[in-house]
Design a protein around this nucleic acid. Sequence first.
DNA 1: CGACGGGCCTGACAGC
DNA 2: TGCTGTCAGGCCCGTC
Length: 271
Amino acid sequence: MPELPEVQNVVDGLKILQDRYVEDVKVYNVNTVKNPNTSDDFEDILEGKKVLDVFRRGKYIVFQLDADYKLITHLRMTGALVVGEKEVTKYTRVGFLFSKNLAVNFNDIRRFGTMSLLHQEELYKEKGYFNLGVEPLSKEFNHRYMLGKLSSNRAIKTVILDQTIIAGLGNIYADECLFLAGIHPNRKGRELTKQEACILVDKIKLVLEKAINCGGTTFRDYKNSKGESGNFQQHLHVYGRKGQKCLLCNKGLKNSKISGRTTVFCPNCQR
DNA sequence: CGACGGGCCTGACAGC
DNA sequence: TGCTGTCAGGCCCGTC
């Protein structure tokens, strides 16, 4: 499931689209397109537009087009943007042809993924994008910012998964960061010490940077835009290891649900 | 305000 | 073998 590091790797592979024109668009699954209201409008507005830039914001992939339009994409669980795939597959939801004969397919097994084509002035319509919090790898995400978000009684895991607070952290990396910071995922935000908050910020940056450099985590479906898997799964300490032994203290890992998501932690190392 | 559950989806897998 | 049930989870929305 693509989180920040995976999305970053996909975006890196999509940079090849910069300065190309959208020559053809075909929507195969109407529900993938949230905006505009009809597939016809989506295709019509896109065709002829130039890609000025492709970048990541949180877990969103953004194509900056000319005429102040943005194509905002979210891969959700199983979405993939595949460069150079000409044939339409069973899971192709939207197909693109860019100039110099470069095809890109938006494939998505479970159809959770979305695409929105919006003019600069209607970005508010994509609420999740519009309300994103700070980028965890930016200077704005620092100890002071984190401390300012820890005044509630919400579980710390819920806080760091909140996209309006930190943009791009998902279930895998939330569990990993809390493990490395030695913080129990159920601790209330307001109960963290200043020191713990500082350690957490540092671990979030560390884990995300390392995962990006590893090409992301391929647990089930994730593939980058060239169809390659990541290998950060080899470095996971807790995610996907429920019932196994802690790599640090050798005691049993526990699991529970927090915010409806499977959470794995070490009750001995995380307090 | 926040917690919670349902819905969206399909494939993998466990158990009978 | 083949069926059924459960799980995976990002995000939105409605309800309490």
